[in-house]
Write a protein that binds this DNA or RNA. Structure first.
Lengths: 125, 125
DNA sequence: TTAAACTCCGTACATGAGTACGGAGTCAAT
DNA sequence: ATTGACTCCGTACTCATGTACGGAGTTTAA
């Protein structure tokens, strides 16, 4: 059992972030004692680790909330994961298209000595 | 010469968006007549097209403002483009790593019939 | 016992890129 | 001349994901 500060420290999170997740209903709040500080147990630490990992996979907090509430309904979880995968793949191909445009653009710049003209700027006009 | 509404329509932009770009100093504002509406000329339309294209390439409004002010200093423009390129490439490889993790994860789901256990959820714990 | 450090809670601020609203002025068409 | 549409301007709100602040209560260590 830890106070929020110790918990934050052990998970490398900000106290304010944990409080934010509480407000957002992402984690269960330990009941506040009549007097004193709230105590956080391993369950909550686990929830926070879950959030951190899912965030790294690109899930939004909203989606993470869903994930946590669908608990072990594997089909539903799989669906959400596949949707996320589709979005990620779309983003990748968007970025690859972009990459190509910018590469082409910057290449036109290389051999340019004219100080009054920039082909990149020009291509944006 | 057009009023803001016509201009917005012709560029497929929202009036509010143009006004927002004005506030942000991204485009030059036509001087307001003593009475009546401001008139937008082709120069401003060009600036707005520039912004739209640069946005599609992933430049932020802040960067676009820089781009527009460096005008034709090609070396400077090229530098900014290369920086943007590096960021785009980093994003791509981040997403590709993510893609792989999620693919692996969802694959573990496919053969699972146990309704009380989801390997995706499990891997996030 | 007292001061430092911590917690609680509510609220405000930050970012980026806009969108929405409301009242007042203006223009165009009937 | 009046109505409806448009513009102007300032301000507030949106979304996501937090961070910061301030005052009051609590705990802990010297």
């Amino acid at each position: 059992m830890k106070t929020i500060g110790k918990l934050a420290q052990s998970l490398n999170l900000n106290v304010e972030t944990i409080r934010f997740y509480e407000r957002e209903g992402l984690i269960t709040q330990p009941t506040k004692p009549i007097s004193g500080y709230r105590q956080y147990d391993e369950t909550i630490a686990g929830q926070l680790r879950f959030i951190t990992k899912a965030k790294m996979l690109g899930f939004t907090l909203k989606e993470i909330k869903s994930l946590m509430s669908m608990d072990n309904d594997c089909a539903q979880v799989e669906l959400l994961s596949r949707q996320k995968l589709a979005i990620i793949r779309e983003k990748i191909s968007d970025l690859q298209r972009l990459e190509k445009v910018i590469v082409d653009m910057t290449n036109t710049c290389i051999q340019n000595d004219d100080p009054t003209y920039c082909p990149i700027i020009d291509s944006l006009k």
